[in-house]
Nucleic acid binder design. Structure first.
Lengths: 201, 201, 201, 201
DNA sequence: AATGAATGAGTCTTCATTCAT
DNA sequence: AATGAATGAAGACTCATTCAT
């Protein structure tokens, strides 16, 4: 049955995600994955051609986590005013911090580990970043349409910039636990920077 | 003589940089490095304890390239007005683009490849990013002191944000050559974003 | 019913013959055989204990092809004169060439592939060659009895020699297609060699 | 030094020959070869790209054994009469028997085992057989030139036939030890067959 | 009688590192 | 100080076979 197979696949992908995000891709062996999943080597190779092959699925899973964890109900079209957009941005930053705290290996795996495997994966990651940028752009386009953002704003580049600011917020978390206070300061400062620039009154 | 030894060391580091930034650290073997340097395996191990060990030197070298290539004469204290600071930012972005074009592997190696080796190196990289952030902060502190930036600006976080914006500018270059026009649009948009936020008039 | 089972068996043997004579025994997997036969792995093992086990059946089938294809109606007792025996030899060579052309993998499989499996199979093959030799001997014994061959001819060894000459004719076909002309030259030369030796006037 | 390397190479080839001709290529592991040679796995791969790769060298070595063991001083041009050629043929058959007895795995490895590895090796083997055939042809051409063999003899095909007769002599040895008497009978009968055909007076 | 998912022992190959010369 | 041949631990992958359904 296809259901059973799909379940096994997902089971293996989740095991691999767990292993990879904990030990790193290179350090992890197929043996670690199958031990985690409780199946044999042979079963692994019934579902994936190679260790490299399952990585694609793992990355998909990680992206799924990121998207559902950060975007959630804050859809691009929902903001009607600049303040509402700022609130969305603020909320997303909050959820991103929470996600990074909950899944310590997620960012390191997605951003750093996966990028060192091979050129194809670098390509996929860049494409991924690009599509996240497009997503960010959609929020700005909504603002421009509704008139609460300047019509001459280069929403594409600004979107990428917003995304980048979000990533910069996450970097300190990679070094270790961040206090709630630090987190709040970061969120405030970044919202301020994003919406008013460094020279904001 | 120590001079000779230091020269050999540097020679090996530069060979390793060339190899790593071309093929990646994991894919490159000690054999590649010694072939590039024209010495034997044994010689390599006379100067470095391990393949991992030379990576530290290579990373230092890469940072040296980044610092000298991007900062150059634009020192933190030099800007006397907001416009001059913007010019500095603009100039640095320009030199960053040029550097990335000239050394295609540099960013990928520094940001992506090196980060996937081990936790110690991740730590070093984060520290590096942090020190770049501190550098960025110095520019903003100068502005706050001279009074052309708001005194309540969180210069630390804003500095990290500026750095992150610079990095975001570079990402498209990883995918392939970027036209001069694109580059100019990026620089304009990012300077606008950094100094006025997305809502700038 | 046993009939149904026997049919399945034969079906599997023929699939295995097709697969083995195309890809070779070692390179072929049980998966190839069952795919060719359109049954499952489990069914295969209902009929054969192992991959090695079906090989016995495949070899039988190959021998059947060889015997029916080459001997046909030219039975040992039918030649009444030396010239008739030569005609028989000639006819068999012709049919051997035709068979090799029609079933390119047959000889390679029987002679080369099967012989590299294990000692037991080498034994079976040698026995097979021996029984072919006995068959060849029967033709010579008929000649000796009827008086058109020397009575002191060592028919056993000469029979094996004849067989060997037939095999030598086939070797070039293993390398690729042989022209009709080449085939004719081979047949003529080999008949001459067999019946008159190299020094025949 | 190239000498040392060449010696190691040969050492490994001879170990591999020993192992392959005893256990067969597929059954033998690289582990067996390096154990026999007393070196490490790594060393093996310093000299050969793969297990398959050393097989080429082993086959060369086997051919070397065959050529030096069977031909020895009996060069093509040496026979001045038909009787002398027959003596050469007889002597070679004798040495072939001796070689097969001395190196039981040689023929099985060369003829059977090697032929089941891959198509490239089958090609090489067929080429080898062909070159042996050319060698046999040289003996017959010498006879034709000197006038003790018919000028219209198809020396190429007859040469291949002679070779094949020699091989047929060896087949019984593959099954087990052959008595001196049997050997003598084989030699007599095959010389008779080769030189006078089955119908010789 | 048929299915096909699961098994896991077995093998090749890589490459950082050592050390005798 | 330099050489480079030798090392061997480590790990990915295959495939004949089993057995619960």
């Amino acid at each position: 049955m296809a259901d059973r197979a799909a379940a096994r696949r997902r089971e293996l992908v989740m095991s691999a995600y767990k292993v990879f995000s904990t030990k790193g891709y290179r350090t992890s062996g197929v043996a670690d994955i199958v031990r985690e999943a409780g199946v044999s080597h042979g079963t692994f190779y019934n579902y994936f051609d190679s260790k490299r092959h399952i990585l694609d699925g793992v990355l998909d899973y990680a992206v799924e986590l990121l998207l559902t964890g950060v975007i959630e109900e804050d859809q691009p079209q929902e903001a009607a005013t600049l303040a509402e957009l700022a609130d969305q941005f603020r909320a997303m930053l909050g959820r991103l911090f929470a996600l990074v705290e909950d899944q310590p290996g997620l960012v390191q795996f997605t951003m750093l580990d996966a990028a060192a495997i091979d050129d194809e994966l670098v390509g996929r990651l860049l494409e991924l970043i690009s599509s996240f940028g497009v997503l960010a752009t959609a929020y700005l386009d909504n603002g421009a349409e509704r008139g609460f953002l300047p019509s001459d704003l280069d929403t594409k580049i600004a979107g990428e910039g917003l995304l980048s600011l979000m990533m910069s917020a996450v970097i300190p978390s990679l070094r270790g636990p961040v206090t709630a206070d630090d987190r709040a300061r970061h969120i405030d400062a970044l919202v301020g920077l994003a919406f008013g620039g460094i020279a904001a009154r």
